[in-house]
């Protein structure tokens, strides 16, 4: 299953190697990894998505904690976090396309539906920019392909995740959080999952 970890790490040379090496050693494939600045000085924020067996989440998290460069680690499930990805898609839209030059307007329409923006228009191609969940990005790519457009290039940032703030239990229930009790402590940072034998995996598979 897919696991999403958010790690705050020191902003120093070699840190990425240490994190990546941990996954390499465990023979776990990283699906996506984003690194950037965080709200803290000298601290980078990584969102790591990996495909690993359900029971390995605790071990990955504990191993990440073991790295001296790690400041904090969190594993986030889809329902309790906002997970977003940025994607650039270059689609062939020249006169040779099935619908000729009218393909441009059709791509514009698709982009509108998916709330994607046109960021470049060339004689032979259109570049779209889109932010959203991975499933939404997959949706746009799929529709473009099934409409017989030639996708020339796709560049995706990989997922970034951030835990949601303190919500009422109704909101949480609507989000599908099984721990929808309105105590602030188990929302901001569930303390129960610090003890591994009590660790409950609330992560859900991406659609």
């Amino acid at each position: 299953m897919l696991h999403t970890f958010v790690a705050l790490v020191q902003d120093k040379p070699g840190v990425l190697t240490r994190v990546a090496s941990l996954f390499r050693r465990l023979s776990i494939n990283i699906v996506s990894l984003t690194v950037g600045e965080s709200e803290r000085a000298d601290t980078s924020r990584m969102t790591i998505v990996c495909e690993a067996p359900e029971h390995s989440a605790h071990r990955i998290r504990a191993s990440l904690y073991k790295l001296e460069i790690t400041v904090d680690v969190d594993e986030v499930g889809r329902s309790e976090a906002v997970i977003r990805e940025l994607c650039l898609i270059k689609v062939s839209a020249g006169p040779q396309e099935p619908n000729g030059l009218s393909s441009r307007s059709q791509i514009f329409e698709l982009a509108n539906v998916f709330r994607a923006r046109v960021v470049d228009l060339a004689p032979e191609s259109i570049m779209l920019e889109m932010t959203g969940s991975s499933s939404k990005i997959e949706g746009l790519i799929q529709v473009l392909r099934e409409s017989n457009y030639t996708i020339l290039e796709v560049s995706r940032t990989g997922r970034m995740a951030m835990r949601r703030g303190h919500h009422t239990s109704r909101v949480l229930k609507a989000l599908g959080n099984p721990n929808a009790t309105p105590t602030p402590s188990n929302l901001a940072k569930p303390t129960t999952d610090l003890i591994p034998n009590e660790f409950e995996d609330v992560h859900e598979e991406e659609e």
């Binding site: 029971h55 605790h58 071990r59 904690y65 073991k66 034998n197």
Partner: peptide, 11 residues
């Protein structure tokens, strides 16, 4: 070491 918990033997 928390990473040793449930590594080889489930406790």
């Amino acid at each position: 070491d928390p990473s040793e918990i449930n590594k080889n033997v489930k406790v």
